[in-house]
Design a protein around this nucleic acid. Structure first.
Lengths: 178, 178
DNA sequence: CCCTTATATATCAAATAGATATATCGTTTT
DNA sequence: AAAACGATATATCTATTTGATATATAAGGG
């Protein structure tokens, strides 16, 4: 990963829609892009500081209400240009880290029942996530006329398409093992 | 990631089939499990040293032929037990890092043509990988009687199923954007 | 004989995950 | 009214991992 911080692009991308705090950014990641990307506080807060130093984001007046300090960030013109350049750049790394598949790949060291159980756990998780995605899809289809929503819609379609493929595979896998 | 080293399980899993060098392990990862897991030298070599210290692998006589030093590792009884315990453990983290999808999600900051191009690049990569997977599938179907091959077969089916879903999505995405 | 490619180990900096510490706020329970 | 709790919010630490690079040898081609 030594090279460019991908989390920077997540942050700049989210800030291109709204001014947000680090905590808001984490919430938005967990809520909308978690189906193809994740982010932790341990990467978000240091990245925000770096981006501010670089001049890609700026700190808006926080703390009006006198509560817990709250730092709202806003994207700058420079930040927008960096984001656009990254979107235009054709190269993209697409990595999976599927521990379930790895457990299955090495399933021969244990019983067939163990592998069937691992498939079952995976299947339950996918079914739960698929339900969430279908709710998102129904909601967004009511507001597809707004330009930006189209891009969100595409990523939801991706999630649904792949998760359905996972479920089909679960059924096949069960048959092959039996 | 602070917690358990997943690369340890990749190494123990591969060593449960054959005695291997660090370099061999890297080759096997790139050749067979790269569709759902990746590994770099920077994680493999330190992990091998750690595993040796722990007693999960042991170093076999290297360097008979007098060439570049070559360290062949073998799994121990303890290593096998750690591997089995991990396979039995139901919890598994399944993460995607799809930069293509992220670029698409934030595609609104650039032209529609840019997003279409990003989809095209993704599609070409998937088509190339799918061809490789189909060759693997054809080869392994000739040798499915061997117990361990079934597990390899399942992971190939997973790759094919998901990659075909990606291609279907590419077509849908093009239509939505147009 | 040189050049390239494959084999092979090793290490470093940067990026990230995941855990934890700290503090505040609003709501519910006692 | 106080205590308990969960959500909000920032920050930091360690362990893990990536991706790059350095080093060395062997094999094959021109």
């Amino acid at each position: 990963m030594a090279k460019d911080r991908k989390i920077d692009m997540v942050i700049l991308g989210l800030l291109s829609h709204d001014d947000l705090t680090g905590y808001d950014i984490k919430k938005q990641i967990d809520g909308s892009i978690r189906f193809f990307w994740k982010g932790s506080f341990g990467s978000i807060y240091p990245a925000l500081s770096e981006l501010e130093k670089q001049g890609s984001v700026r700190r808006l007046k926080g703390n009006d209400s006198g509560g817990r300090e709250k730092i709202i960030y806003s994207i700058t013109g420079q930040g927008k240009e960096i984001l656009r350049a990254w979107v235009r750049d054709e190269k993209a790394s697409n990595d999976l880290k599927y521990e379930t598949l790895m457990k299955l790949f090495f399933g021969g060291v244990e019983s067939k029942e163990t592998s069937l159980r691992n498939i079952e756990v995976f299947e339950e998780q996918i079914k739960a996530d698929l339900k969430v995605l279908q709710v998102y899809k129904a909601n967004i289809e009511k507001a597809l006329d707004e330009e930006d929503h189209v891009y969100f819609y595409l990523t939801i379609l991706f999630g649904i398409e792949t998760y359905e493929a996972y479920l089909k595979w679960c059924n096949k896998a069960r048959k092959v093992l039996a």
